[in-house]
Structures are given as C-alpha cells and as structure tokens.
Write a protein that binds this DNA or RNA. Structure first.
Lengths: 244, 244
DNA sequence: TACAAATATGTACTTACAACACATTAATTA
DNA sequence: TAATTAATGTGTTGTAAGTACATATTTGTA
C-alpha cells in the first residue's frame, strides 16, 4: 500500500456502510528535481491492470491519525529519505470516477528537492526520475495533476524564492538561468535575467568561482538565509496592496 | 445534515473498520457578497455544543456519487438558489484534530455572488451575511479557512476579472473602486485606479448614467462578455512567460 | 444663484521591462 | 607562447506601467 493507490476492487466492495464514510482520502506528490539541465518528476509504475505500462505519481492513502500535510511528507521521505523539503499543497482532485477501484479523492502536493542530496529508496516498480517534458500520459488523472502542479510552480517561481530548493547550496547565475528556462520552457536574455535577479535581492555573492568547467568560470552565489522557506503550508498572509 | 458538519460523536464511534475508510470528506464554502459598501460572507450558527454562539461557514459532507466541485455547488445552490455562480477551490484542510467529532477533512471553495440577485433559503440557525472585517472567531478552523480564501481573493482580484461577480450587471467606476477598496482594505487614488482599469480593457462603456444618486451621476459600465468566466475550476493553463 | 459633492481628465516623475552590443577572462589548441 | 574559443560580465536606450498630485465640470440642493 506504499506506492500509488492500489486497492483491489474487491477490497473496496467489502466496505459499504454509511454513505459518508466510504470515500478514501489520499495524497499524491509531484516531486520535482533538476538534473542534467532538465526538470524531472519522480514517477513509479502503476500496479493496476488498467494502467499497465503507465506511470503514476507517488501517493498513498492518508492514515487516520496523520495530518494531510504529514501524509505527503511521509511519502516524500519514504522515497527520497530527505528530511528538509519544500512541500506545498496545490489542489484536491475529487471527481467521482477518477479512480477505477472506487471513490478516492486526492490532494496534490508539489515538492522541490535537490537531486544531488537524495538517493531513491524502495525503488520497486521502476521508481525513477522522468523528464517532465517527455510525459504525455499517466495513470489515473495523474497527468492533469502534474500539469496543475507544474503550472503552480511556474506561477510561483518568479514571485517567490522557491526555485533554490532545486539547486545545490552554491550555484552560478548561468545554472540558475538554465533552471528558470527549463521550468518555464522559455529562453531568457542573460542581461535582463541578471538584472531581474539582482533587483529581487535574494542572493549573496560568495566570492568564489565555479571549478571544473571547460570555460571561464562564473561567480558562485547562494540564497540569503532569510529566504530559505521550506514550508509545509501555502502561506496565507500576503497582504501586499495590489494597487496604488 | 445540510448545514455545517454536524455529526454526533456517537454516530462516528459506531463506524470504525478499515483505517482508511473512516475519514469523512466535506466541503466548506466561503460565499462572499458585497452589500452596503462592505464585503460580507455567508455564515450560519453551529449546532455543536463546543461551538455554541460561534458561526461557521456553509459546508456539508460530500456524497459518494458527487464530485467535490458538485458538492460545493450544491451547498451554494441550496442556500442562495443561484444557478450561475463563480466558484473556485482554494485549499484542503486536513489536520487530525480540526473537527471535534472525528476525522473530517474539508476542501474550501470561495464563491462570489451578487447580493441583489439572491434570496437566502433554509434560513435556519441564523443564516445571514456577516461583514468579513467584523469576524474575529469562528467554529472549527473556519476562521483560518476564511482568511485563506480572502487572501486568495485578494491575490486574484487585480489579475483576473473575477470581482465583477460581486456587482450587478451595470455599475459605475466609483462602485467598482469602492469594492476593490473593501476587498483589499486599502484606499485607492481615483485617477490612478481608472487608468489601471482602462489598461485592463475589461469594461464596456454603456453610455448610460447612474440614477437616483444625490450628486452628479457617473457613467455606467459592464464587463465585456468574453470575461464572464463563472468557472468551477481553477484554470490550470496560464503559460504566460513570466520573465523577459 | 451660489454652494456642495461628486465626476472626469492630464502631467511630471520614477521605476520596471525589453531589445540589444561589446569588452573581459580562462581554458584549449595550434 | 600566442591565437582561438566560449563563456562571463556589464551598460544603454526606448517603451510601458506605476505614483503622486490639481483643476475644470456637472448635477442636486439650499
């Protein structure tokens, strides 16, 4: 029961009491990383016959004694072993027919992790990182979930300093720009990009240089500590006056 | 069972089988309207003893055969009788202890309706419109839900033409500005506000004038039809390139 | 007929955005 | 060791939007 939502239909049919207590509750995690200049997502092969050969997101049913946030954190930890992750709730998918084995509503979270600092665990069912842009079809409604989370990531990425969770501690501006380009699927002008980042005032110049690059090394930067926000919850307190 | 989530503890204790099928699923609606220059929200008195004298949002358990979106739409319709409403999912609240009678997770929706075009129905338990800014405390975690939805509304209001769902078909720029001010809790400069709205190009000049106002009447406008988006879902397709 | 109260509009300053070009540095190669 | 290559690192200019601020106009009312 640790991967995906794998309830046999029989299992579901056994249970049928009050109408209000046979909706199963799950979470699904869209876990992003950045590797080889590509945005990737953690996927696993579905057990269900209906979806043989399709990949699904990492998910599980929520336990009776755990918060929704905790459940998604548990899944992430079980698979990546990481303790300190960026995790944000995005949307809850609750169509009646979204799961072939019964009524299951699922809350989607997206997560950003540094590929270098994790090793996948419980790597059964072909658990692996898959380039986001190659994914055309997934099991269940997981493609829609992925798209929704990717869109949320795109919305957030210029407004809030979340992208740095995908990078190692030290990075060059080129690396940062390439990451933005991978997420947004656009090409950016280097000079304008640097200006924009400079205005945000998110970075500290480390006075160090890249090493082992086959060209002129760039300066290294890190995120200012005050922006390291590995929150579990969507913050609900931006009161910025949106108009003049 | 139509208002709030009112399960007696006994009812809940009867049911206790597989761990995964005794989480109840509900929706809660933050239904906003605009009346007497105030942003108001529809509230109802809670049945639970724990929360006597506190108000709660309109909510209900989700039925086995209805989509999550449909459930929130049903609640809205039951109370306001309105068919064509703006409704958007915001966040799912799933703390273990958020409901005193048992494990209930709830998905919050916010909705915008024109106060003039509805009549409240099933007005038991002191169902009424309450000014948002006067609400300090609510039953359950409903104050947090309200805050989260209000913040979402504030985020959306300048980016997307959703605010017009709170206004009658025809309105003056002053009315529109007052509504923005009520939602954002700011004072806006009239000249800059008009410029900003003009740039958006959301409005049609109706070549009509306000009537029955005790001062010089203003022009009336309406929203361009192509922006009347009474969507049920958060759109998941803004691919705007966020950077140069 | 004067007054009060709101509508309607314009200008100057500042800041962000977008398109674009050149000098500099380090590694590689001839 | 000098020339080449491929990246880094900046600066300028035009355009659009944001902000602060003032005056003339229209209507209802006293």
């Amino acid at each position: 029961m640790a991967k995906g939502i794998n309830l046999k239909t029989a299992e579901l049919e056994k249970i049928s009491h009050l109408d209000y207590f046979n909706i199963a509750v799950s979470v699904d995690c869209v876990i992003f990383c950045y590797e080889n200049k590509e945005l990737k997502v953690l996927v696993i092969k579905s057990d269900l016959e209906e979806f043989s050969n399709l990949y699904s997101l990492l998910g599980d049913l929520v336990r009776l004694d755990e918060d929704l946030d905790t459940a998604s954190y548990r899944i992430l930890q079980e698979r990546t072993g990481m303790e300190d992750v960026y995790l944000e709730q995005v949307h809850t998918f609750g169509s009646v027919d979204r799961h072939p084995s019964g009524r299951v509503i699922t809350t989607a979270y997206y997560s950003l992790i540094d590929a270098k600092h994790q090793k996948l665990r419980l790597t059964n069912n072909d658990l692996h990182w898959h380039p986001v842009k190659n994914i055309k079809k997934m099991a269940f409604d997981h493609k829609a979930i992925l798209d929704t989370c990717l869109n949320r990531l795109r919305e957030q990425v210029m407004e809030h300093p979340v992208i740095f969770n995908l990078l190692p501690e030290k990075f060059s501006l080129r690396e940062l720009q390439e990451l933005y380009e991978a997420i947004l699927s656009v090409e950016l002008d280097r000079r304008n990009f640097r200006k924009k980042i400079a205005i945000k005032d998110w970075l500290v110049d480390l006075n160090e240089m890249e090493e082992d690059v086959p060209h002129r090394p760039g300066k290294l930067y890190k995120l200012k500590p005050e922006f390291k926000r590995k929150t579990l919850r969507r913050k609900s307190s931006n009161q910025r006056p949106l108009v003049a």
